[in-house]
Amino acid sequence: MNSREKILQAVLKNQPAASVLPDISMFGGNKSEAVQQYLEIFKTIGGTALEVADFAEIKTYLQDNFELTKRTVTTLPELGDMAEMLSQTVDPHTFEDVELAVIQGHLAVAENGAIWLTDEVMGQRIIPYICQHLAVVVSANQVVPTLHEAYAEIGIGNYGFGGFIGGPSKTADIEQALVLGAHGPLSMTVFLLTEMS
């Protein structure tokens, strides 16, 4: 008998009598306050979140706050005139020198600041992790109150990789002192776009 069979047999023999799954449909939050809550929570996490009316506003913000002379990549055609459209086929190691990545997010979660992204909007999976600074554009309509609504919207999905990202990378491993920028981005900016709504 191989290990698989041995393990499965032991599990079957030792597991207790079946118990039912609880109903979790009663959990959820309040949609009407979601955008305001998102903006506040994301700030407490160490990120920057702002409501913008259109892409022109996003461009101005990026020009004022980032060194766009350094390598800037995007998956958003609207930003094609100020950033490199990123290739989905090159070796991911070639993105090591990316200073700023601007990508689209599917939805934002008000209770914890997290944005849901899949490989489809990342361009390449490594992008939101390897860049020094990350900016994400999400439709203001797509802000949900809690993770319950988020997973209801995500459903089973058909992605190869997906992730919640809720702020700049951080560590507190050295004497519990909070340091932003552990291995991933040093900063994260979220644009809640009202025009997309």
Partner: peptide, 24 residues
């Protein structure tokens, strides 16, 4: 999949008081 909403809501809050880990 939907059970992740329960566990991701309690994990980081219990661990460090964060609303969620930065990366899930």
């Amino acid at each position: 999949k939907k059970h992740l909403s329960i566990f991701l809501r309690v994990l980081a809050r219990s661990a460090t008081g964060q609303p969620i880990t930065i990366y899930s």
